[in-house]
């Protein structure tokens, strides 16, 4: 009796050694979009606590940027940009920014990464980490320009650098998302 499973073109995808077990999982939007988004929002709210620890304020990273970088690399999706837009609107309201400020900035990053995903998917994780750094720098240059246009005042660049550094610390979230969900479901291919 022949096994049709072996003959299908999916064999190449499934025969990946350690990833073989992962390939049999069913990954839904809630797994790679919903829960990470809720987690990021919760951490953002917690980090907004007005307190000092050992004389230092808590950092304020723009954590949704990690999702805007990782989601288009995982797979094209209609849900991801909508959730990202909602997260941008949340930041606009929660941080008291002009409406559309964070939404526009995050969506531009998502769109650029989505256009370039063909060149980025499959790269080594060190390369991905470097590309995420480039994305963070570009993102904060964009937000600085937008804030200057809006207020007529250039934001303090040292503070921008500090926030960019805190945002780059979320590279571990990016690498975890890619490791967990890229090629995790055959339907993503």
């Amino acid at each position: 009796m022949k096994t049709p499973f072996i003959k299908t073109p999916l064999k190449v995808t499934l025969d990946r050694g350690v990833r073989k077990g992962m390939a049999q999982r069913m990954i839904g939007p809630l797994d790679w979009i919903g829960w990470p988004a809720l987690g990021v929002l919760a951490v953002t709210i917690v980090l907004a606590t007005p307190m000092k620890v050992f004389g230092l304020y808590l950092p304020e990273p723009v954590l949704p940027l990690a999702l805007a970088f990782a989601w288009p690399l995982i797979r094209p999706s209609y849900v991801a940009p909508l959730v990202l837009a909602l997260m941008g609107a949340f930041l606009d309201y929660f941080w008291g920014a002009p409406l559309g400020f964070w939404t526009l900035s995050l969506m531009i990053v998502y769109g650029v990464i989505f256009l370039l995903r063909g060149y980025m998917v499959g790269q080594d994780m060190m390369v991905i980490a470097g590309l995420y750094g480039v994305a963070v720098i570009s993102f904060f240059i964009l937000t600085t320009i937008l804030a200057t246009i809006d207020s007529g005042m250039v934001p303090r660049l040292i503070s921008v650098f500090e926030q960019a550094l805190a945002t780059y610390a979320a590279v571990f979230l990016v690498l975890w998302l890619l490791e967990s969900y890229v090629h995790a479901d055959v339907r993503f291919q």
Partner: peptide
């Protein structure tokens, strides 16, 4: 979404 965000931003 970008167009919507830009219009919201300009109307701020």
């Amino acid at each position: 979404v970008c167009i919507f965000g830009a219009l919201s931003f300009l109307g701020d």
